[in-house]
Design a protein around this nucleic acid. Structure first.
Lengths: 143, 143
DNA sequence: GTAGACCTTGACCCCGGCGTCAAGGCCAGG
DNA sequence: CCTGGCCTTGACGCCGGGGTCAAGGTCTAC
């Protein structure tokens, strides 16, 4: 199949597939006229990548899984390298959750304190405002 | 004081201060020769910004706090707009923590499953005796 | 008078993961 | 033959929060 069909079947875009190819993550064969050509196996690899990415894995982290599948294993996580990525990700998630929890505590404390301080000053009502979209991207040990 | 001194006292860089000014977050007066000039009040504002940023607030989110301080309030969170930011941040943090927790569960489950699958293969493939390192002889990269 | 430490503006670079043109090739249907 | 829909490569944009030059102005100390 060609790039457009693969993109559609995987629920992504052609731009994304070209990008993955540029990373060497999902190379494509070529037909006579230079068009990229993919098969069902490529669809599986791509699905593996997209699934992991939905979990918040970076593209580079999906590479062991893809290599694992390509080397003939039944699942992308059948190889030690993939398990290692799982473990690293777990540690990363734990640390991230702990950090966010600590911040949550401190912000919560600040809010209560500030609300109390205001209550003492005056009992004016605050106007409720619109609520923009909260966004959360799981960032690794970002420094 | 000039920009270098303020930066040093606040533990940041001159580049950062110029950046904040470009955002209109921390404007500076100018002396005759064009140098930026700051006072102790600016240091307080800057400290408020840096503190919130360390909590993971985006720069734009610190604006209400800075405005609050500048309008003469004793603390940056003495104004309703700041409290609103606190509340939004709490909700954001809660949602983020919950999402990460859910992912953590799923990744953990996957790891256990994959480890068990591998253990079955190992015991099936390796004869009785010592159990060496769970090392898989997969062709590294390049295939 | 000159070194050197400070200051100014402007401009490009970084990170990941693509979105979005732009200019042009290839192929099928009417 | 033309249109339209796919495909190709290349290149710039974006997001946040600055880092890091570059080229030059200003002030102080010796």
């Amino acid at each position: 199949m060609r790039i457009g069909e693969l993109a559609e079947r995987a629920g992504t875009t052609t731009r994304t597939l070209r990008y993955y190819e540029s990373l060497g993550l999902l190379p494509a064969r070529r037909t006579g006229n230079g068009y990229r050509s993919y098969d069902e196996e490529d669809l599986r690899l791509l699905q593996q990548i997209r699934t992991l990415r939905d979990f918040g894995f970076e593209l580079e982290e999906t590479r062991p899984f893809v290599d694992c599948l390509r080397s003939g294993h039944p699942a992308g996580d059948s190889c030690p390298a993939s398990l290692e990525v799982y473990r690293r990700k777990l540690a990363e998630l734990d640390e991230c959750i702990a950090r966010l929890g600590a911040i949550r505590e401190r912000v919560g404390t600040q809010l209560v304190r500030a609300e109390r301080a205001r209550a003492e000053l005056e009992t004016a009502a605050t106007a409720p405002g619109g609520a923009p979209e909260p966004h959360c991207e799981l960032a690794p040990p970002g420094q």
